[in-house]
């Protein structure tokens, strides 16, 4: 049974230009103990999906879904109190913009300690205080911070961006959630730290059976961790498959473009020559093209593409394209 089960999640926003659909009928399931990658370009709505799961919204957003469940809990209809319990115990999210997610006027150590649950700890006040401190240090070591004393005593503005991000990760895993939503957890970290973070996530997944939704904008991080991936473009899921399969044979032109951007593909072009990429950029939500949203940028587009393609199944692959790539 899937731990996270999303069916037809739609997020609309009221803007000056009218109502736009930022996320359009997205379905996503993750089985317990698995890792799913969610890959898409900037602005494709990845973070919005994460926010919808953890229940963050703004007054001008309208979030609807046929199903949004965590195990047997319906996340769409929760009382305030129930939601708080679920958030505290079952779900955690690593946000994308780490520096603004920390309270600027409180020391980082205190903030980290507050996010460590003590419900299961028996002992007096002092023992619990000491224990929390120890836990906080251990968490910082896990995410690759060596100088825990300095970091815990600092205010966020005194830390570099990368360290803030590491602290955020530590806070997210502190509560040992069942589901972890990691929104680009290793962005702009150096390769060593990044691989340490990915190893940590992998270990949490394997030993604690933590289910992870790994959001990223390229394959490079996702492929090391995720068994399955969903590719999202402009708020729509365009391809879903196992990671191994999708890397060896993609059906959707957009997936292929993402794969072409992988380092080993780029390597082949000489330094300082133009890089290969899809022409154009993600369309604005206010001016979406008719039919297939990749249309204007797609090298394989044909007349029929003005009709919106629906997700179809081919072996264990799901993809939304009228002219799937022929395999060699």
């Amino acid at each position: 049974m899937p731990l996270l089960d999303i069916r037809n999640l739609t997020i609309e926003m009221d803007m000056a230009e009218g109502r736009v659909k930022a996320v359009d009928r997205v379905s996503l399931t993750i089985n317990e103990g698995k890792v799913r990658g969610l890959i898409g370009e900037s602005g494709s709505g990845k973070s919005l999906i994460g926010k919808a799961i953890v229940g963050i919204s703004k007054p001008n957003w309208r979030i609807t879904a046929d199903r949004l469940r965590l195990g047997d809990i319906d996340l769409m209809n929760l009382s305030e109190r129930e939601r708080r319990r679920v958030m505290r115990e079952d779900i955690a999210m690593i946000f994308q913009d780490p520096a603004t997610c920390l309270d600027p006027s409180e020391e980082v150590g205190t903030q980290l300690e507050k996010s460590i649950p003590t419900d299961n700890f028996k002992g007096g006040f002092w023992r619990r205080f000491q224990w929390r401190k120890k836990q906080a240090q251990a968490l910082l070591h896990k995410v690759g911070i060596k100088d825990h004393r300095h970091v815990m005593q600092s205010y966020p503005y005194e830390l570099s961006q990368g360290v803030c991000q590491q602290v955020m990760i530590a806070m997210a895993i502190a509560g040992k959630p069942k589901l972890l939503i990691a929104d680009e957890p290793s962005a702009s970290m150096d390769p060593n730290t990044a691989s340490q973070i990915l190893k940590l996530l992998k270990r949490l997944n394997q030993t604690n059976n933590m289910t992870i939704l790994l959001v990223s904008n390229d394959f490079a991080t996702v492929r090391e961790l995720a068994q399955d991936v969903s590719i999202i473009y402009c708020g729509q899921i365009v391809e879903v498959a196992q990671t191994k399969e999708i890397i060896s044979r993609a059906f959707h032109p957009y997936t292929q473009a993402l794969l072409d951007a992988l380092p080993e593909q780029r390597r082949q072009s000489a330094a300082k020559t133009p890089m290969k990429n899809l022409a154009g950029s993600v369309p604005l939500l206010q001016h979406l093209p008719i039919g297939c949203r990749l249309g204007p940028r797609c090298p394989h587009a044909q007349k029929q593409c003005v009709e919106q393609p629906v997700l179809q199944k081919k072996r264990s692959h799901l993809f939304a394209c009228h002219f799937p790539l022929k395999q060699e």
Binding site: A92, T100, C101, K114
Partner: peptide
Amino acid sequence: QNYVKTALTKGFSRWKILIDHGLRN
């Protein structure tokens, strides 16, 4: 601010957040 939203996703109640982060800032 994002840090308030982050606190919300940690399951703290709005009143606790008001005391903890809101008034402090």
